Simulated scan of single mutants.
Amino acid sequence: GWLRKISSGLTFIFLLCIAWALPSILPVFNLPTPSGNYSIGSQYIHLKTNLDEIMTLETGDKRELMIKAWYPANLEHEKPEPY
Rank of each mutant, 00 (worst) to 15 (best):
A69V: 15
C17K: 04
L31C: 11
L57V: 07
K48T: 12
A21R: 04
G36V: 03
W2L: 09
D61T: 09
F29K: 13
Y44E: 14
F14L: 15
L57Y: 08
S39M: 09
H46F: 12
N74Y: 06
Y38E: 07
I45T: 05
S8W: 10
L51A: 12
S7A: 15
I40M: 00
I13V: 13
K68Y: 00
Y44G: 02
L47F: 10
L26N: 07
K68C: 01
T11F: 06
F14D: 01
L15F: 14
W70Y: 15
N74L: 07
S24K: 13
M55N: 13
F29D: 02
I54Y: 14
P27V: 02
N50T: 11
V28P: 03
L22P: 00
C17T: 11
E81W: 01
D52R: 03
R63H: 03
P80D: 12
P32V: 03
S35D: 11
P82C: 04
I67V: 15
S42E: 14
P80M: 09
W20E: 09
N50S: 14
P32T: 09
A19R: 08
W2A: 13
H46N: 13
L31V: 07
N50D: 12
T56D: 09
F29N: 10
L65S: 09
I67T: 07
N74F: 11
I6A: 03
T56L: 15
D52L: 06
G1F: 04
L65Y: 08
T59R: 13
K62S: 05
L47R: 11
P32L: 12
K62Y: 05
P23D: 13
L16R: 11
L57S: 14
